[in-house]
């Protein structure tokens, strides 16, 4: 369990980092928190010729409020976002999700943007970005682009970040008024990747009737699956909305697979249970918002 040889780069500025990445192209891999990359290297499942360590680019550690949401820099650790009071006010779903990400020692090191770029369909943060309709900012030598969540996750462990590009930040839209969120999951052990998990967003109109109802599911497909269920739950006050019907609608949309920890049928069942719980909790939050 020792990595194969690689060249190590530790740029001290963003410009330098982008230059190195431009030079290494397909052979370059960015190292931030290293919570997924280092095990992959040690098990020789990944063998990039160049490792570009961005831990000196401390400007990228910022967590800042922007009009309409929160921008999280590429070096912001999970724990920093989890503990940020401002982040919790702007978008409570971030904190709700981060508490479910692995263990504290991993959250102290791992980064939010790193988790998005890693694009594990079992991970919480890609689901959060997808549910909220956020975006990832990709920089390359000579330019940047913002990629919306819907186009960012392209497959299991595959994202839109291309050779020579560095994900410098992610943008999470703020919680709208009269809206609420929740994240529920079931994992085999505390901190494990979820067998199934559901993030929910519920918004109410001026008459306090459900006008937004959306979920994002983890571990049930190649990318985070977002389902709009506002039609299924009915344009009704939360107390009389058909949350069970909404959960069934979610179950119909997902395509879980059987693996060594759970069958596809169980994952489908679980996703329905969790979807109903998350939607109900999100609606309760919306009423109190």
């Amino acid at each position: 369990m020792k990595p194969p040889p690689f060249d190590y780069h530790r740029p001290s500025s963003l410009g330098e980092a982008l230059d190195v990445l431009a030079g290494t192209g397909e052979d370059g891999k960015v190292l931030a928190g290293g919570q997924s990359l280092i095990p992959l290297l040690n098990m020789r499942l990944a063998a990039p010729a160049h490792l570009v360590d961005i831990n000196r680019l401390t400007d990228l550690a910022a967590v800042e409020e922007e009009p309409g949401g929160l921008r999280v820099g590429a070096l912001a650790r999970h724990s920093r976002v989890e503990r940020s009071a401002r982040a919790a006010e702007v978008q409570p779903l971030l904190g709700q999700a981060l508490r479910l990400v692995a263990h504290p020692v991993i959250r102290n090191r791992g980064t939010v943007v790193g988790s998005l770029v890693h694009a594990d369909p079992a991970a919480e943060l890609p689901a959060v970005l997808a549910l909220l309709g956020g975006s990832v900012r990709l920089a390359r030598r000579g330019g940047t682009r913002d990629v919306p969540a819907a186009g960012f996750f392209t497959g299991p462990l595959e994202s839109a970040a291309g050779p020579g590009e560095l994900a410098v930040s992610a943008f999470f839209p703020a919680l709208a008024p009269r809206s609420g969120t929740a994240f529920h999951e079931v994992a085999r052990r505390h901190g494990d990747y979820a067998l199934a998990g559901v993030a929910a967003l519920v918004g109410l109109d001026d008459d306090l009737r459900v006008s937004v109802a959306r979920v994002a599911c983890v571990s049930v497909g190649p990318v985070p699956l977002v389902a709009d269920v506002v039609g299924a739950c009915g344009h009704r006050p939360p107390a009389s909305a058909d949350w069970a019907g909404a959960a069934r609608a979610v179950q119909d949309r997902i395509e879980p697979e059987t693996d060594i920890h759970a069958t596809a049928d169980y994952r489908r069942h679980l996703t329905g249970v969790l979807a109903e719980r998350a939607l109900r909790d999100a609606a309760r939050e919306a009423l109190h918002a």
Binding site: R188, L195, H261, A262, D265, Y266
Partner: peptide, 8 residues
Amino acid sequence: LSPSELFD
């Protein structure tokens, strides 16, 4: 016995 097996 896992939750998935108990479900079955």
